[in-house]
Nucleic acid binder design. Structure first.
Lengths: 232, 232
DNA sequence: GCCCCGGCTTGCGCTGGCTCAACGTCCGTC
DNA sequence: GACGGACGTTGAGCCAGCGCAAGCCGGGGC
């Protein structure tokens, strides 16, 4: 397992434009690692010893309030860099990262960060882009929380999930990691009860199909409809 | 007004470590400009032609929902760079920026951005830091909206305002730009009615002192107390 | 001095979504 | 194959905060 194949990186954004040599160089510095479902990858406030590339799986970014409540800030789909504290001027991680399901990651020591930025053309631009889209997503969610009702927020959260990490099946699009009602409620600032009621209603209407730790969206368009005519 | 004094930049973060020569160079490329209160500095989606440094005043960052509702995403205090679309991998501005009161800014054409990053040591690091703290603030607000009640959110918003842009007076700390109940409601995802009721109650208790477009906090510690014992 | 308008206040009734509570169901373990 | 624990469902009641509506106040323009 020492020798990682170059094809791992040829199609992921920060590296996709690089020469074979450069990719080889980056890979030789990387440590691969597997995380079990629900295992913690790093914790808020911890010294940022590594930065990561998610090769396979989904990562859940969680923050805990002083009162002990959890909220899920973000899900990271495979193929993205994460834990890049250096890129946002920090030396510690800003939140917890947990494996939403079994994950395969590459890790690099943070001290290599500056070198990567200078050594690999496009690396920095790619990172800026990632940071920008995270900022954009947070802003969108801020607006949702401030202006939308629970029903719409849950619908939007589901749509985002299937867009980012959806797996298409003959029946519809399925969230491809185990997700509970509680998880959804922590993404949308509501309670598992309310989410459960919504899912039941949507299932009756044939919009979703869900079970234990599993959600499949049959009719994304009808969820979108919910979000648009929010006034009425 | 052509010749800007170097002391303008010697104490603001992105430039504070630079040599006199470097500062001179940056200043000679800048265009100074004044904006009236409530004037738009740039609009969401617009081509990002410039990046800005706020020399004096306060900038309000606003997003508008498809339904025409506004929410205030952020206030930028003087001494900060803003409108740096390039730093987050965008070519357009991500939100509206308006002068919360009369503002004095320096503007540079965006095409100079990359040059600044390479030319001025510490510039890039300083920007990362700014981006990071904005991300952090948005994450905090996300959590507040998701978990806190209106009363606590408004209290937290006020505390943030006086921390970032407060002016200390013998009577207490005053928000040093005109701010309406409506503005506060757009920052906290509530209605002006609820904010008004809260302000009235707090005024009765001697915690704040407020009037038309004006808010002064007499007892910040009592506001903080509100936020902590949120369970009870 | 008067008027008008933008901002602020306050009462009242309603309701979305939370809380509490009880129960059902699936799955892994021993 | 019985048990325990995690996950999900559903009902009932309640209340924080919203929407509506009416009125107040202060400052700027003429």
């Amino acid at each position: 397992m020492k020798y990682l194949d170059e094809s791992l990186l040829t199609h992921v954004p920060p590296f996709d434009g690089l020469s074979r040599r450069d990719i080889r160089e980056a890979l030789d510095l990387a440590v691969p690692r597997r995380f079990e479902a629900d295992e913690t990858i790093f914790a808020e406030g911890e010294e940022a010893a590594h930065f990561f590339l998610l090769l396979d799986g989904t990562v859940r970014v969680v923050r805990t309030t002083p009162q002990g409540e959890q909220i899920i800030a973000l899900h990271i789909p495979s193929g993205q860099l994460f834990g890049f504290a250096r890129a946002i001027g920090r030396t510690t991680y800003p939140a917890n990262a947990e494996a939403a399901r079994e994950c395969l990651v590459l890790m690099w020591p943070t001290r290599l960060w500056d070198g990567f930025c200078e050594r690999f053309p496009g690396f920095r631009a790619s990172i800026s882009h990632t940071v920008g889209s995270r900022l954009g997503e947070m802003q969108d969610r801020l607006i949702e929380l401030a202006t939308q009702r629970v029903e719409q927020r849950v619908a939007l959260a589901l749509l985002r999930l299937i867009e980012q990490t959806g797996r298409t099946t003959p029946e519809g699009i399925e969230v491809d990691f185990p997700i509970t009602r509680q998880d959804l409620s922590e993404m949308t600032g509501t309670t598992l009860h309310t989410v459960s009621r919504l899912m039941s209603a949507w299932q009756r209407d044939g919009i979703v199909e869900s079970g234990r730790r599993r959600i499949m969206v049959r009719a994304p368009d009808r969820l979108e409809a919910f979000c648009e005519n929010s006034g009425t």
